[in-house]
Simulated assay, not measured.
Amino acid sequence: MLDPTILTIGGIVLGIAIIERILERWGVINLVDQFSEIMRFILPVTFYSALIYFFATFMF
């Protein structure tokens, strides 16, 4: 369960979410809107790619 690839992908997504929250607190709403539009596409693609990778490399 502690596969470095999965942890790296999760860390990147978590980092982007934290950056989005920081920008929201700073009041840069237009940039946050652009981030949310990009993340609306990237998050599902990343999730399903990581899920496929996990099951492809998981030893049953």
Rank of each mutant, 00 (worst) to 15 (best):
M1I: 05
M1S: 09
L2K: 08
L2G: 15
L2H: 09
L2I: 08
D3Q: 00
D3L: 00
P4A: 03
P4Y: 02
T5I: 10
T5M: 07
T5W: 09
I6H: 07
I6W: 06
L7N: 13
L7V: 11
I9V: 15
I9Y: 06
I9C: 10
G10D: 01
I12C: 06
I12M: 07
I12W: 06
V13R: 06
V13P: 01
L14W: 13
L14Q: 12
L14G: 10
L14D: 11
G15Q: 04
G15V: 01
I16M: 10
A17P: 04
A17W: 10
I19K: 11
I19Y: 11
I19Q: 13
I22F: 05
I22P: 05
L23A: 10
E24Q: 14
E24T: 13
E24S: 15
E24M: 14
E24C: 11
R25M: 15
G27N: 06
G27F: 08
G27M: 08
V28S: 09
V28C: 08
I29C: 04
N30I: 14
L31K: 02
L31S: 04
V32P: 02
D33W: 15
Q34M: 15
F35P: 00
S36A: 14
S36R: 15
S36C: 05
S36D: 14
E37K: 14
I38R: 12
I38L: 13
I38Q: 12
M39H: 03
M39V: 05
R40A: 11
I42G: 00
I42R: 01
I42S: 01
I42Q: 01
P44Y: 00
P44E: 00
F47S: 01
F47N: 01
F47A: 02
F47Y: 03
Y48I: 14
Y48K: 04
S49Q: 06
S49V: 07
S49T: 10
A50T: 08
L51F: 07
L51T: 04
L51S: 03
L51N: 01
I52F: 10
Y53F: 08
F54C: 05
F54W: 06
F54V: 05
F55W: 07
F55L: 07
A56D: 02
T57M: 03
F58G: 02
F60G: 11
F60W: 10
F60H: 10
